[in-house]
């Protein structure tokens, strides 16, 4: 017999070794996330997946489920904190949704709607982050980076190229590419790489296909992310 824990008061079965987030998803319960991806080990940096277990906050993507745990996730307290984390990400970078090609397909934007974010609350940093248009097929707009490291991990572990890495630290942390010139065009990056197709926001975008899908017909335009994300099995 498999074990179970309580997720927002409802019993959830799990197999030994599953994390809280994995087990909850398998049972049809959505937990917000940005840096988590089913194809990779947990990263634990975005902290959107925080839940409360026995009065303590933990990252549900990283913590193995345990028999009898009582997990609080979809509560005003936790969602309020998640909303603040999304607000922080919005003020850290330069996110201008109306002019962004990723609008409607962007997980950060979709989470902001889903978490009922009405404004950014905190003062903007307005960092200076030049774009990199050196690659023939792909554009890098660093203004939108949220440091989930999905491109870093996909390029290193799946594509075997290590095209991306993070350097600097603290608020000065930033994405770099694997070239002495610092230009994506001087790397072996390809539009077919997994890293080219994994960005949850609008940093790594394809050239010359802008607005091929009209606004209104995009991934999160009709339904909120907590439904879409559970449907497409991602």
């Amino acid at each position: 017999m498999s074990k179970q824990f309580l997720f927002d008061g409802r019993p959830v079965r799990f197999e030994e070794g599953q994390t809280i987030l994995q087990a909850a998803r398998a049972a049809g319960h959505y937990i917000p996330h940005l840096c988590w991806h089913p194809d990779f080990p947990p990263h634990g940096s975005c902290k959107l997946c925080i839940v409360k277990v026995a009065g303590r906050h933990v990252s549900s993507c990283a913590l193995p489920a345990k028999e009898g745990m009582e997990v609080e996730s979809n509560t005003p307290e936790i969602n309020g904190e998640r909303r603040a984390l999304v607000q922080m990400l919005f003020v850290e970078g330069n996110h201008f949704c109306p002019s962004c090609e990723k609008s409607g397909n962007c997980e950060l934007q979709a989470l902001a709607y889903d978490l009922e974010m009405m404004g950014e609350r905190f003062a903007h940093f307005f960092p200076d982050r030049p774009v990199d248009a050196s690659h023939p097929e792909m554009l890098l707009d660093f203004n939108r980076c949220i440091f989930c490291e999905l491109c870093v991990r996909a390029s290193r572990e799946v594509d075997g190229k290590s095209v991306f890495a993070l350097t600097g630290r603290g608020i000065h942390k930033h994405l770099v590419v694997n070239a002495e010139s610092g230009r994506l065009g001087d790397t072996d990056f390809s539009a077919d790489d997994m890293a080219a197709n994994i960005c949850p926001v609008g940093v790594i975008v394809r050239k010359r296909v802008g607005f091929a899908t009209p606004i209104g017909a995009r991934k999160y335009d009709d339904k909120p992310i907590h439904l879409v994300d559970m449907e497409d099995g991602k």
């Binding site: 940096s45 959107l48 922080m88 850290e92 630290r169 608020i171 000065h172 942390k173």
Partner: peptide, 21 residues
């Protein structure tokens, strides 16, 4: 703390910088 945050997680990377501001 803002100077020494490694920048890995959202709350510390941005929170320490916001606190400093």
């Amino acid at each position: 703390f803002a100077h020494e945050s490694c920048g890995f997680c959202t709350p510390c990377r941005i929170g320490t910088a916001l606190l400093k501001k």
